[in-house]
């Protein structure tokens, strides 16, 4: 008996399905075998602790530790005998404690740091004398000349630090044209320090409750030149050096520097500075009784 038309169609259709299934199956099996062999043959042993350490890191991949990304840092941590200088500025001591626990090594506790901008040459304090019309990048302006003001040391204000910051922590204030650091967001990764062509940004100890004192100027010109260029520049008068009871301040090349390892945050230097170049951050407002002292010194 001849099969009817429907049956022929059905058998043909089944054939097509069968052939497709078989072909696909064979291809799949061959590919699986190749993959298996390749995976076995080219297997690279990696210390599983690298993954563990990487998981403990903040995954910011900022390069603040000096390694290319968090994995590079994790690799270095696992391979080194002692953690020593290895430090993740973003995660801080907590993260390093975790890493140390994973690896059974000891982490060196480091003080938490924050970026400070050592220039306060706002438009008000430091008049703009010419107008820059090149590419609005600090590194290009710096490559060309000293800047729009008479101070060849100060901030150019085009915000290369802002571009470099991965944490949105440093921003150029459009009114003052000086970058401002957001303490809460800053991780002290150091990207802005490397980005600033004028070397104005420094990582300093964050201090208790974020209190810190620093010289907001990097001008190494002689006092009279600095004074002409900027109202709030350090003129190297050394009053702060004389008044500091802890010998935390050094003056070189007409520029004062406060060593944050020694500074006890007594704020005496802030009071004597004739140009207000020394900045105090996160201190409570001064009590009225302190003022007379400041006045007598000024007088």
């Amino acid at each position: 008996m001849l099969p009817d038309l429907d049956q022929i169609v059905f058998i043909k259709a089944m054939n097509v399905v069968l052939i497709s299934l078989l072909t696909l199956g064979v291809i799949g099996a061959v590919a699986a075998m190749i993959l298996f062999v390749v995976a076995k043959k080219f297997h690279v042993f990696e210390d599983p602790r690298i993954d563990e350490v990487e998981a403990a890191l903040p995954a910011a991949n900022c390069g603040g530790c000096g390694f290319p990304g968090c994995r590079g840092f994790a690799d270095a941590c696992v391979k080194s005998d002692e953690l020593g200088d290895l430090f993740c500025p973003v995660g801080g001591n907590d993260t390093m404690a975790k890493v140390a626990a994973i690896l059974g090594k000891t982490a060196v506790v480091q003080a938490q740091k924050v970026a400070v901008v050592r220039c306060d040459g706002t438009c008000e304090h430091r008049p703009r004398l010419n107008e820059y019309d090149g590419v609005k990048h600090c590194f290009i302006a710096h490559n060309l000349y000293s800047g729009e003001t008479n101070c060849s040391w100060g901030c150019l204000g085009f915000g290369d630090c802002e571009i470099s910051c991965e944490f949105d922590a440093i921003k150029v204030n459009p009114e003052t044209m000086i970058p401002e650091v957001d303490d809460a967001k800053c991780t002290a990764c150091g990207a802005c320090v490397r980005a600033c062509p004028k070397l104005l940004i420094e990582l300093r100890k964050k201090g208790p409750k974020g209190k810190r004192i620093y010289v907001g100027c990097r001008n190494e010109d002689k006092g009279h030149i600095t004074k002409k260029a900027c109202d709030v520049g350090c003129i190297g008068c050394a009053k702060c050096f004389k008044v500091c009871p802890h010998e935390a301040i050094t003056v070189a090349n007409s520029l004062a520097f406060i060593n944050d390892d020694i500074c006890k945050l007594c704020r005496k230097c802030v009071e004597v500075c004739p140009t207000n170049a020394i900045k105090e951050i996160n201190f409570p407002p001064r009590k009225p009784k302190v003022e007379p002292v400041a006045e007598t010194i000024e007088a």
């Binding site: 703009r128 010419n130 060309l144």
Partner: peptide, 9 residues
């Protein structure tokens, strides 16, 4: 112009 313009060559 009030201020001189500075730009690279």
């Amino acid at each position: 112009m009030e201020k001189l313009i500075i730009s690279p060559a």
